[in-house]
Amino acid sequence: MPEPAHSFMLTIHVNGVERQVQVDARTTLLDALRDRLHLTGTKKGCALGQCGACTVLLEDRRVVSCLMLAVMAEGKQVTTIEGLARGEELHPVQAAFVEHDAFQCGYCTPGQIMSAVGAIKEGRARSDDEIREQMSGNLCRCGAYTNIVAAVRDAAAQGG
């Protein structure tokens, strides 16, 4: 365990549930989610804020959780990929990703989906060009980009 001087007990509201989590002052929000809360749907791709795989919604804003310290999320609402579906019923963006085959390996997918959910909510998915621009912070090395655009377009049309 971390030494006491570096250790904090935080309260974060994750997917609508209040969670207590013990972190190091240096722990990123990403590592807190993955390694402390075992919510591994949020992915680590670069830990440098460059790939977008770790995108979550913080109070409805898209953030790369690798560039945020966990302590900065104290008392805040965090939505991760695990918080989108209602039971067995997929969120419209998730369903559209499956239908349009908007991924191959699936590793960047949670980040892509969280970005799409955020962009649609912000009203920034109004055209293919706008979707491409808004989704360009999320790298997909398998190259599913055109399918991602189709999925986001479809989901946005359904009110995302």
Binding site: L39, T40, G41, T42, T80, I81, E82, L84, A85, L90, Q94, A95, F97, V98, E99, D101, F103, G106, T109, P110, I113
Partner: peptide
Amino acid sequence: NRVDGPAKVTGH
């Protein structure tokens, strides 16, 4: 559709 699609899009 991918049979592992739901697992991949839900983070599971």
